[in-house]
Design a protein around this nucleic acid. Structure first.
Lengths: 370, 370
DNA sequence: TTGTCAATCCAAAGCGCTTTCAAATCGGCC
DNA sequence: GGCCGATTTGAAAGCGCTTTGGATTGACAA
């Protein structure tokens, strides 16, 4: 249909350097048509559909019925233009500059947020973008006006984006926090520090004294907090955190394997690993078994578990002992918070701290006596 | 929803029966302001910025400069309303009804597609939605007019969505194919059949005769094709595919582990596994090693490798022998194809078949003589 | 001088929707 | 009947942008 029209246009004008697009919205019913069919004004129909009180229940029903029958749905661009609201939330997902890695937790976070958006009639617009370009993208989102707010992912220490977004004047909520950032902002985070303190404490209670930390990249705020939790637990137990045992890198299976293999081959190998993601943990398990050690007996592993849908650790007795916190649920909550901020400006800057839950699985046991 | 909003308003402000939203686009420069600053008409400024020829090079420069200085960017809703184009592509990502699993390949596919969109000034709008609701969402996208086209993910056998989208009249491209679907449609797919035929052939050449297939869910079209490739290779070698050795399920590490553990414990265990994803392969490796068998010696594994960024298998000698095809590259190409379909209607329905590449890693070796 | 033509520019009419402001209608009551 | 207040409806003015159909130049040839 559309194809034909444009084709005609192209053949009509000989060699135009610029295509002029057809203007009409072809076949979708619009407000005018609907109101004509009903013998009502656009005003009334609009009001009826949007639930304004000035229209009688009878006509409201007539209108609703007709709208359904003709499969009418208001054009969002027009509505947005009229209301000044885009009915969409932006997610800017950074591509790690070094590795071009998309953190797999995004899929689940976004699945959670998407649930809420769908329920509230919002769309989600996604930009996947190099770290360096994020600021530009936020600015564009504001000036293009295609979102009403954004969720900021993967905050780093003293993240400049927070100040930028403040200037820009676009409502935003940070998934995570940015320590060192002076300005107030809305956020939702899991208590990473406490989770790792707790996990380390659990391993200490089992008698482990040499405990490795395989952390995510330490420019990430969450990684910093996790390390500090780990260190706090050791210190509280009278131990001195050994820098040799604290590694950080992209959270991949390969990293887990390599790091664990190296550490286990060292003169004084750790008896336990505390790691930042299931993928790392899987790599660690491989290194343990490759070395002929028994996973969960000779060497214990505790992981942070984002409860990703395709990496489930949910059996009756989970494979991995883990600090678990569903990132999908985090997505839901973050989305709900941001929508609320938009719907009720003036409610201030909400924040929410989720606690991870310790689930004991087969990957931990008492430290072997040595 | 709206009802709720109104309710909230009622409790907040005393007597107002309805919230009327503020109309003005607060602080972002608009075309009118910019043209006034320049002493030109909106027409001229618009044309200058959009590269139409009717404006002198001199004023074009002036305009461009001013636009940059004032950080002007056209409001997409208004532009969309005027042009009838949304400058956005929709991705509807199905949530497996049974497991609520988000296939992890989406993250990378979308990263690839996003690159192209960004480069072309398009946005990506994402809906994550239960399988059952997909059709509705496509219809909404059309009538809401917030996308110019969609990419269809995870096609199943004779997928009804293809016919629906045809009716709806929204340009679309399928990532994958839907065998059994009579209608023509645009698609991009990897040659799954050939990839698995090739991989099975490779294992046959190594002397493997009992070869298990751990496949994805067989309502998925790609899984069907993979099985048929596997079966074809066996048949060509004079073997009869053994149903006992062909399993399918969600592509998780847990499935790989469970299935491989079961099969290896059976009276006539396979000497090789052909599996549908890296995660499955990782599970298989675990089962092999748990059983005290040597991975890549006693038991061989070939996997399909989507080259996901966080599951890299790219070492000089890869861990897994794999049929590799980058899903991120697929995302790039799919996006480019769809954009082209939209920009040049009348080019028909393009399609592209990618070939996976065989990379030989450490997970395969000659069949043990027994 | 006049007409022609190309090169520039502009006023104004949309795009589909919301919302203001005013008008019409209705019931009830004097 | 006439008037008032409450209830329903509509006409029209935007929202910010593109694009049509002129208008206005200046250069140049007739």
């Amino acid at each position: 249909m559309r194809a034909q029209k444009a084709l005609v246009a192209l053949t009509e004008r000989p060699v135009v350097s610029n295509v002029r697009w057809p203007k009409r919205f072809e076949d979708t019913m619009n407000l005018k048509q609907l109101s004509e069919k009903l013998g009502l004004s656009q005003t009334t129909v609009s009001r009826a559909l949007n639930g304004y009180p000035e229209v009688s229940e009878e006509t409201r029903l007539r209108v609703a019925e007709a709208a359904r029958r003709h499969n009418y749905r208001p054009n969002m661009r027009a509505r947005g233009l009229a209301t000044g609201r885009a009915m969409a939330i932006g997610h800017v997902i950074p591509l790690s500059a070094k590795f071009a890695i998309v953190n797999p937790i995004f899929a689940d976070f976004i699945a959670g947020a998407g649930e809420i958006y769908a329920r509230s009639g919002y769309d989600m617009v996604l930009s996947i973008v190099n770290e360096s370009e994020e600021a530009r993208v936020y600015g564009e989102m504001k000036s293009k006006g295609n979102v009403d707010g954004v969720i900021v992912h993967s905050p780093r220490h003293d993240d400049p984006r927070i100040a930028q977004l403040g200037d820009i004047g676009l409502p935003f909520l940070v998934h995570g926090r940015s320590s060192g950032c002076a300005l107030p902002y809305a956020w939702l985070d899991v208590n990473n520090r406490h989770a790792f303190e707790r996990a380390a404490g659990f391993l200490l209670d089992l008698g482990h004294r040499r405990m490795a930390l395989l952390n995510g990249p330490e420019e990430m705020d969450f990684a910093i907090r996790r390390r500090s939790g780990y260190a706090a637990a050791l210190t509280a137990a009278g131990l001195v955190p050994d820098p040799e045992l604290m590694l950080c890198d992209e959270m991949t299976e390969a990293f887990g394997h390599r790091a664990a293999a190296d550490l286990l081959a060292a003169p004084e190998p750790p008896t336990a690993f505390l790691v930042a993601s299931m993928l790392i943990a899987i790599g660690v398990r491989r290194a343990i078994e490759e070395r002929g050690l028994r996973f969960g007996r000779d060497v214990s592993v505790v992981t942070f578990d984002d409860d990703l849908s395709y990496l489930s650790n949910l059996d009756a007795v989970p494979v991995f002992t883990a600090m678990r916190s569903s990132v999908r649920e985090a997505g839901r909550r973050a989305a709900a918070m941001l929508l609320r901020m938009i719907a009720e400006p003036g409610i201030g800057l909400p924040s929410q701290l989720l606690e991870a839950e310790l689930v004991v699985g087969q990957s931990t046991g008492p430290a072997p006596r040595g």
